[in-house]
Every structure is written in structure tokens, then in C-alpha cells.
Computed example of a mutant assay.
Amino acid sequence: MRIEEVSQVCKRVIEEVERVVVGKRGVIEKLLIAILSRGHVLIEDYPGLAKTLMAKTLAQTMGLKFRRVQFTPDLLPADITGTYVYNQKTGDFELRRGPIFTNILLADEINRAPPKTQSALLEAMQERQVTLDGKTHRLEEPFIVIATQNPIEYEGVYPLPEAQLDRFALKLRVGYPSEEEEAEILRRRVQRKSDFVQVRTVVSREEVLEMQEAVEEVHVDEDILRYIVQLVRATRQHPKVEVGVSPRGAETLLKLARAHAVLRGRDYVIPDDVKAVAVEALAHRLVLKSEMWVRGVSPESIIRDVLATVPVPKGLQRVHH
């Protein structure tokens, strides 16, 4: 699939999702960029902001299988991955596949489940396979986890460790709608006469895989690679930061920037692509010095600071390769 075609398909997907989800184009675009670059997403926000609706609608629109798992303190790894069950008729153990055998998995309130269950999911995210009783099962591509967590509850939650946060390509916030958008949500509900929304499938699973392959063809200039490296290195040397962005973070930023270029219909990356995804791709990977938390310094502000100070490569805005 050519870059222009991928860009057109992305536009159709976004338009279809926006029939259901009002005023969240930025978030929808970032979710789409994550899917194109085979990245997983963590959404941290309050309940009732259409996180589930967005993930489900995106899956339907892209012809992908969707499963949702509500994470709870008593959720076991086998509840996600599945388990072998004894079949009395055949005398064999048969695999009963868990919800992880899907294309888009919504892991709702991931910080409510204990670390053992979290790590079962995160292993599958990294390896794109599940090992049960010594047998390895590949997960069908594409496989994308969209995990959510609620920022206000500290009782009875297990915060994700830094090493696990690093596995997420993006950390997003949905945010409340504006007054006009909220009125539009209610208007559409009145017109629909139902809680359920029908969406069209505008692309197939096979085409989604082709779209992912197209992203790998996007040209990245040596100057852009250097720019990405300088950005992540600046986070490691920042006086307010204890632990900066890892090389994995740099690689993820590259993949997301390429997907962003495709979304904009280009087959080459410009600095603006890197800047457009940098805050959501990098902020959650930082560990700030403890006194910074007390002072209310946010990881996002550090990334903005770095973007403002690292020199942008010149002359790449208009070059077409």
C-alpha cells in the first residue's frame, strides 16, 4: 500500500470514529499512530471520558477483533492468557484461549491488578506471544494493548513500575470535552434513540498490516536521527531528572514520528513529526528527582523544556526525497 493510500485510509477511519466520539481528533490520531507503529498505549484519565468507546470504535472501523478485560485485585494471569483444560471425552488437555488472543485488547484499570497479572500482560506486549505450560503461542498481528488507569485512586492500586511503563509507546490523556462538544454528545444521543452506535468498517485486518508495513518505508534523514538522539540524551543530562529516556524510548519516538508523517501524507520525516509525538512518547519514561515531585514539576514540562532547547535540524521542512 502506497503512503498516499495509507493517509487516505487514515482520514476515513478518523471520520468514521468521529461520528461516534465527539471532539477528540488529537487522541484518535495518536491511537491510530500507535496502531500504525505497532505500539501500545496507556491512557490515564477519569472515568466516563469515552476511553472504552474510542478503542472499541477504532477496532470496529479497522476490521479488528476487540476484547476488553476489567482488571481487578483478584484477576489471575490465566484469566488473561488462557489455560489448558482437561477434556474428559478425548482425554486430552485443550487450550482455552484467554482474551489476549485478539487484535486490540483494552486493559481497563490496569493498575488494579497485582504485579504478577500485570507482568503476564506486559510480557505478551513485548514478545507478542504467550507461553502456557511450556508451549509458545504466537499472537495474531496486529496486536495492540490499550491500557487505562484512573489518576485519582491511590487506594487498592498497584502502580506500574518504570520498566513496565517503558513498554508503552504513548501515554495519553483524553480530557473533558468543551461545553459545545458536550452539548453535541447529548444532541447525538437524542437523535440516535439508542445507547449503541453503528459504525462502518472501512479497512480490513490485512490492509492494516499493509499500512504498518508502509510506515517502515518512510525515509528518515540522518539529521532527524541525530535530532532524536540529542532529544533523549538531553533528558538524561537534565538537572531535574534522575533517570532519562532509554534507547527503547528513542526507537519508539522514531517509529511514532514515521507514522505521524504517514498520517500527514508524507513519505519522509520532518522535525515537526518528532515534536508532535515527543511529549506523549517520552514523558512517562522519565523518573524525576524526588524533590521535583514535591515542587510540582511534571515530566511533560521537562520534555517541552528539552524540545525548546535542543536545536532543530534546518532545511528539512521542504525537502522531498
Rank of each mutant, 00 (worst) to 15 (best):
Q149I: 09
V157N: 04
S119L: 09
G134T: 00
E155K: 08
L121N: 08
F143R: 13
I146G: 09
E123V: 00
G134Y: 01
A147Q: 01
T131M: 07
T117E: 08
I110N: 07
Q126D: 13
T117M: 07
F143E: 11
Q118N: 06
E153V: 07
P151T: 05
Y154T: 14
T117P: 11
F143M: 12
E153N: 04
P114V: 12
I146L: 15
L160W: 02
I110V: 15
P151I: 05
L121H: 05
P114M: 12
P142W: 13
I146V: 15
F143W: 12
L160V: 14
G134D: 01
A107C: 12
T131K: 05
G134P: 00
P159L: 00
D108E: 11
E155D: 14
E109Y: 12
L160M: 14
R128F: 05
G134L: 04
A113M: 10
P115W: 11
Y158Q: 02
H137W: 14
D133K: 13
P114Q: 09
T148M: 01
T148K: 00
T117S: 04
T136A: 12
R128E: 15
A107N: 10
E109Q: 10
L121A: 10
K116F: 06
Q149P: 04
T136P: 00
Q126P: 06
A124W: 09
E155M: 00
E123Y: 08
P151Q: 04
M125S: 09
E127H: 03
Q129D: 02
E155Y: 13
N150F: 01
G134R: 02
R112P: 13
I110Y: 09
Y158R: 01
R128N: 14
Y158S: 03
P159G: 03
V157I: 15
L132P: 00
N150C: 02
